[in-house]
Amino acid sequence: MTAPDKRVTTDEIVGEIRDGMTVGIGGWGSRRKPMALIRALLRSSAKDLTIVSYGGPDVGLLCRAGKVAKVVYAFVSLDSIPLEPHFRNARQSGAIATTELDEGMFLLGLQAAAWRVPFLPTRAGLGSDIETANPEIKTIESPYTSSPWGLEPQASGGRSTGERLIAMPALELDIALVHMHRGDRGGNAQYLNVDPYFDDLMCMAATKSFVSVERIVETEDFLKEGPVQSLRINRLMVTGVVETPNGAHFTECPPDYARDEAFQKEYAASAKSGEAWDAFRAKYLDVSESDYQMLVQS
């Protein structure tokens, strides 16, 4: 076999992230987030980042650590703790800029970037304060007043003729960071939980995409892990791959492991004061990944 070897280290990945870059982060809420890569990013000097995420503790941690200039989001939540406390503090103190989106608009922005088109049309967002908050988002009028082929289904009831729609701009990323269950040395990657989220779109929307995986396996062993449909990310989408066991901790990564709810509570409590954050940071973030893993597994 002549597949490439795209294995890299977390430090090499973080070394690609320069000040001011736009970084897309995979997963959803407090689910299958590339936390080992986020922890490495927290230890780096990178700053003024624009973060694009179906947000969870990735967003909260980066905001609290002063890495973020702007967050592009539809929600930021820890799931079992509905509101992300560090993100709330950052918003309420005015520390960060934001772009507010509907969850579906967010998907279409990633899809547009992945397909290399400047926008995708949607009805989602019309009339809401998404339009007010984002005057830069334009609307378009459908160029069709009727079907160009005379297709008029009898039950269509006047389907989209000359309709005004939101032109959701492409969410183009410099870097994508995602976490999957299994990967091979070439960067093909597999998810084993029930939802792929939008990790493949994140990868295709980015100039450079990095995948952390629970375990690197031989390509021929993928189908021992899960069905062929679970091979969601192919190596054409991927710049580098790194093995980070327990690398989504403390977010959930079933079937390998559940969310560490006790740790998540401790994390949330660190938003209560500067002292609480300093203690949390000193104990869990100003340490190496291997020390972190020893701490959380003891």
Partner: peptide, 21 residues
């Protein structure tokens, strides 16, 4: 206010798309 809310809640989630669709 949107620019700097007094209390940040969930965000828009899927509400704009739900209500128009």
């Amino acid at each position: 206010a949107l620019a700097q809310p007094k209390t940040q809640l969930l965000g828009f989630r899927g509400a704009p798309g739900n209500t128009i669709n």
